[in-house]
Simulated assay, not measured.
Amino acid sequence: MEQHQSLITWYVLFAITQATALVLILIDNNTLADRLTAAGLLCLNGVWFLLYGKKLVSRGDDDWHGLIYAAGSLATFAPAVWFSGNATFALFGLVPQIYMVLPVAWAFWPMALFVFTPQILTWAAGAVPALPWPAALLIIAFSQAFGWAISRMSEQSRQRAELLNRIEALTIEAERARWAGEIHDTLAQGFTSIITLLQGAQPNVELALRTARENLREARALVASNSPSPLDGSSLEDALRRLVNGVELESSFRVIGDPVGLQTSAEVVLLRTVQEALTNVARHSGASRVDVVMRFDEDGVSLEVRDDGRGFGDAPEGFGLRGMRARLEQVGGTLSLSSDDGASVLVEVPL
């Protein structure tokens, strides 16, 4: 957007210089034929820019195509100056174009040729140049400095555009990772529980139906960007107690200390972490019992999920544990794992 606005500004400048040069040509003291010829040639110069030069400027090309454009522009500008010296005013728009379609090192010589064209043609006609040669040299020096500034601004604009594109790509990637984590923590875990329950005896059907309904509410909450459905209308302690009571193992849930209010983001992280830990216990640990302890103290809140299964062993951390750590880092929390007499997942979040 910023680059587009900058180009619009340059296009307006080019149009103003061309229009001013045309007015100066038409009020010149030359014959009507000379004035109309010069004006026509300058109009052709503008058409050449619209058909070819504008494409190079908008794309930011700095290669040999710029030399083709410079040659075509000079082919219409030079004879226009021959028929009317007032066409020289068009240089204020033509010189910047040269630097916008060519590298700075390449643009110097075409620019110098453009600036010297009125001098050379006036001298060839046997007249005294209206612009002294020292003044022409000064214009060339100024044009080179101006062209360098244009090149720097163009490069900075390109770098800003690349940075914005990179930020946008990272934002999209982070959002995809967030959704992947949410789906893994909610729908995937819930449906895994349904499959496990349905593989069991008939009494588990009711629990499977209840789990399916909870996951349906969870899906709707995700789409609506609401808070996790287990927290809707209840405290974190109640939501955790429901999660623990819903596992197909002997389980217990205890709260130690005086509960305090937590930020919603911290409550979501704690809930998701316990949900992930319980799913891992049911799927991988081979445990017969799981206990969850929530502790409040002056520094923060901690949650420990302990089972009597086979422990973590030397298995690498999977997506679930990596997702736990990533979410906890967002709220300044930590995750600790141990495998003494089973497996223990300890989560600590500061107040």
Rank of each mutant, 00 (worst) to 15 (best):
residue 78 A to P: 06
residue 23 V to N: 02
residue 7 L to D: 14
residue 18 Q to E: 08
residue 277 A to R: 04
residue 223 V to Y: 10
residue 216 L to A: 09
residue 188 A to I: 12
residue 31 T to P: 06
residue 19 A to I: 11
residue 129 P to M: 06
residue 51 L to D: 02
residue 321 L to N: 04
residue 270 L to V: 04
residue 122 T to P: 00
residue 281 V to G: 08
residue 301 V to F: 11
residue 61 D to W: 04
residue 29 N to C: 01
residue 146 F to Y: 12
residue 147 G to A: 07
residue 99 Y to K: 11
residue 287 A to D: 09
residue 42 L to Y: 01
residue 59 R to W: 02
residue 348 E to A: 15
residue 288 S to Q: 10
residue 145 A to H: 14
residue 36 L to R: 04
residue 307 D to A: 08
residue 168 E to V: 03
residue 54 K to F: 04
residue 167 I to V: 14
residue 48 W to T: 08
residue 123 W to C: 01
residue 266 A to M: 08
residue 5 Q to M: 11
residue 150 I to N: 05
residue 127 A to L: 09
residue 25 I to V: 09
residue 26 L to N: 08
residue 102 L to N: 05
residue 124 A to G: 04
residue 198 L to M: 15
residue 80 A to I: 13
residue 65 H to M: 09
residue 214 E to T: 13
residue 138 L to A: 10
residue 255 V to N: 02
residue 333 G to E: 13
residue 233 G to R: 11
residue 2 E to L: 10
residue 228 P to Q: 06
residue 109 W to Y: 13
residue 125 A to C: 05
residue 3 Q to Y: 05
residue 15 A to F: 13
residue 114 F to D: 00
residue 231 L to Q: 04
residue 201 A to S: 15
residue 198 L to T: 15
residue 49 F to Q: 01
residue 331 V to A: 07
residue 156 Q to Y: 08
residue 70 A to S: 14
residue 231 L to E: 04
residue 310 R to P: 00
residue 209 L to F: 06
residue 107 A to E: 12
residue 30 N to A: 11
residue 155 E to V: 05
residue 188 A to G: 04
residue 267 E to L: 00
residue 229 S to Y: 10
residue 111 M to F: 05
residue 58 S to N: 07
residue 33 A to N: 15
residue 45 N to F: 01
residue 180 A to K: 15
residue 257 G to M: 00
residue 136 A to M: 09
residue 155 E to K: 12
residue 184 H to A: 14
residue 55 K to Y: 03
residue 210 R to W: 03
residue 282 A to L: 15
residue 164 L to F: 12
residue 245 N to D: 12
residue 302 S to C: 05
residue 344 S to I: 03
residue 334 T to F: 02
residue 289 R to M: 07
residue 286 G to W: 11
residue 150 I to K: 10
residue 21 A to E: 01
residue 252 S to N: 10
residue 85 G to P: 08
residue 256 I to D: 05
residue 304 E to T: 09
residue 8 I to F: 13
residue 24 L to D: 03
residue 133 W to H: 06
residue 69 Y to D: 02
residue 97 Q to H: 03
residue 209 L to E: 14
residue 305 V to Q: 03
residue 217 R to A: 04
residue 157 S to A: 13
residue 97 Q to P: 00
residue 350 P to Y: 14
residue 288 S to G: 13
residue 89 F to Q: 07
residue 214 E to S: 14
residue 232 D to E: 14
residue 154 S to I: 07
residue 308 D to G: 01
residue 138 L to T: 06
residue 92 F to L: 10
residue 193 S to M: 13
residue 4 H to Y: 11
residue 58 S to L: 05
residue 17 T to G: 00
residue 66 G to T: 08
residue 189 Q to S: 15
residue 184 H to P: 00
residue 253 F to E: 07
residue 269 V to H: 04
residue 21 A to K: 06
residue 27 I to R: 06
residue 105 A to W: 13
residue 130 A to D: 08
residue 96 P to M: 06
residue 54 K to M: 07
residue 206 E to P: 00
residue 49 F to G: 00
residue 78 A to Y: 07
residue 281 V to I: 14
residue 220 R to I: 00
residue 237 E to D: 05
residue 20 T to L: 13
residue 220 R to P: 01
residue 326 A to M: 10
residue 141 A to P: 02
residue 259 P to E: 08
residue 35 R to G: 01
